[in-house]
């Protein structure tokens, strides 16, 4: 009896310690998630005074919605454009910043700087850069006789403009993780490779890169989720235009919920996005993880 009671006491104590964060998690995470799931099976737009259950109608509609498909493809291209490039760039920057003998601190700060600037401010800076006719980029393009390009107003340019900006913003952040990863690799390994006469490329390919794989894995997951999370710049720069050419899934959810006031559809879209992210993370974690060496 006494033993059971002691066990109880320990358990109660543990739960009490967990309680504060548990309350907030339940209130602000689990409960809204649950509500979103329920709402996604309801019709809840301006035309229905009370939300009512409509089964999987929202999801059916979604599949027939051209904008949804446009937004989803946009987002996949956006991810494809930003993730590998920013990760590769971050790795290159980290290798350089780690090697630099002089001005190490300056180089790191310079690379990291874009990360510290709020996205809204970044968007404003780039808005100026991309402005047609008198923007900074137009001035440069003028020298090549192409000063009349409209970066944000042209359907075929706008996505590239966004991708470029986001890479600029994110690479410095990922570099920090790579720098930490590089610091964890023992100097002896490089010296041993030097004794064997391995070239810089061989050392990178056979030693540095494999040992940085845990970092690469982590950073690519972050980069991928970021590519779905990022929405601030659209609000400032394009509002998803022109003609949804730069619209991304999260911004579309926002529009559906708070411009078109279709809560049910917005919930359904949210569920789709969450499932998509989970699926990709699962592939990365359970598929690639086995091939990675962890210390």
């Amino acid at each position: 009896m006494g033993e059971l009671r002691a066990k109880w006491k320990v358990n109660v104590y543990a739960w009490l310690l967990l309680l504060p964060s548990l309350i907030f998690l339940l209130l602000f995470t689990f409960y809204p998630v649950w509500q979103t799931v329920i709402l996604s099976f309801h019709q809840a737009d301006l035309g229905s005074p009370e939300p009512f259950f409509n089964g999987i109608d929202n999801y059916k509609q979604m599949l027939e919605d051209d904008v949804f498909w446009k937004v989803l493809t946009n987002n996949l291209w956006f991810a494809l454009g930003t993730v590998p490039t920013s990760v590769a760039l971050a790795l290159g920057m980290a290798l350089f910043a780690n090697k630099a003998l002089r001005g190490k601190g300056f180089i790191r700060t310079a690379y990291f700087y874009p990360t510290v600037v709020p996205m809204i401010a970044v968007a404003n800076i780039w808005l100026f850069i991309y402005t047609p006719e008198y923007g900074a980029l137009s001035h440069v393009m003028d020298w090549f006789g192409k000063g009349d390009m409209n970066w944000l107003g042209d359907q075929s340019n706008v996505m590239w403009a966004m991708i470029f900006m986001v890479i600029w913003k994110e690479a410095g952040y990922f570099m920090i993780f790579y720098l930490a990863g590089l610091q964890n690799i023992s100097q002896e390994l490089y010296e041993s490779a030097a004794m064997e006469g391995a070239s810089a490329w061989t050392v990178f390919r056979r030693v540095t890169f494999p040992l940085l794989m845990p970092t690469t894995m982590f950073v690519s997951i972050i980069a991928f989720t970021n590519s779905f999370k990022l929405v601030d710049h659209l609000v400032i720069m394009t509002k998803g235009g022109p003609d949804n050419a730069s619209n991304l899934l999260l911004y579309y959810i926002y529009e559906t919920a708070f411009s078109f006031w279709d809560q049910g559809m917005a919930s359904a879209l949210t569920i789709v996005m969450v499932v998509l992210l989970l699926a990709v993370a699962a592939v990365q974690f359970f598929g690639l993880d086995k091939k990675i060496h962890y210390n």
Partner: peptide
């Protein structure tokens, strides 16, 4: 020359 390091410098992966 070959060299044996203090921490052996084995490639962990």
């Amino acid at each position: 020359i070959s060299m044996v390091f203090q921490n052996y410098a084995l490639y962990p992966h």
